[in-house]
Computed example of a mutant assay.
Amino acid sequence: MHELTICANLIELLDGERRRRGFRTVKRLRLEIGRFSCLDPEALRFAFEISSRDTFLHAAALEIERPPGRATCLDCGAAVEVESRLDACPHCGGVRLDPTGGDRMRLIEMEVR
């Protein structure tokens, strides 16, 4: 489960920010996990709950946004948003889509105390 590794890296990153900026705890985290990413939001939620126990993140609410994937249709040239890599182009029905976005995780916002 690579979600545990991702949570460990996130906690390490946030701990560095906590020391640098001087806040004590995190009340809320908002993440964006693109639909083309290889992350399962529920597995990440579970991993975060386990990984953040007994840390400055132990009571933090985790909010996850799931933006659609973005691709360029190689048949009609349209820039499209799709829910899955297997979706057809909503403009022409073509199935040759070249992914251009929606494959990453990023921290959008955090609320600290």
Rank of each mutant, 00 (worst) to 15 (best):
L39K: 08
R28Q: 06
L31E: 14
T25S: 07
R96C: 06
D15R: 08
L13E: 14
L62G: 13
E109Y: 07
T72C: 12
A47D: 04
D98S: 15
R28K: 13
E32S: 15
L14Y: 02
R35Y: 01
P99H: 03
P90H: 14
E111P: 01
I108D: 14
H91F: 10
G93V: 04
L29V: 06
A78D: 11
L31A: 09
L14M: 09
A59Q: 09
E81V: 05
E17K: 06
P99E: 08
A79N: 15
E63T: 11
L107V: 02
C92E: 09
R104C: 13
L29C: 03
L14H: 01
A88P: 13
M105K: 00
F36C: 09
S84A: 13
P99I: 07
M105E: 03
L4T: 09
L74C: 06
M1R: 12
A43E: 13
A60F: 01
L86C: 05
R19I: 05
R21H: 07
C7I: 03
V82F: 02
R85G: 15
R24T: 11
L74M: 03
D98Y: 15
L44T: 03
C89A: 08
A60V: 10
F23M: 00
R19W: 03
H58R: 12
S84H: 14
E63P: 08
V82L: 05
T25K: 01
T100F: 02
D40F: 10
L107F: 02
R21W: 04
I6G: 11
L10M: 11
G16E: 05
L62T: 10
E42D: 08
S84T: 02
A79S: 15
L74K: 11
L29K: 02
H91D: 13
R45K: 08
S52V: 03
D40Y: 06
L97D: 10
A8H: 13
C38Y: 09
E42H: 00
I64P: 06
C92I: 03
G101L: 03
L86M: 09
G94M: 00
G22C: 05
L97E: 08
G34F: 04
E65Y: 09
V82H: 07
K27W: 02
R70D: 08
E3R: 01
A60D: 07
E12D: 14
C92A: 04
E63I: 04
C7Y: 03
L74T: 06
D54C: 06
G34L: 00
R30T: 14
D40K: 09
R19Y: 04
G93N: 01
F56C: 03
V112G: 02
E12V: 00
S37W: 10
M105C: 10
E111F: 00
R20E: 09
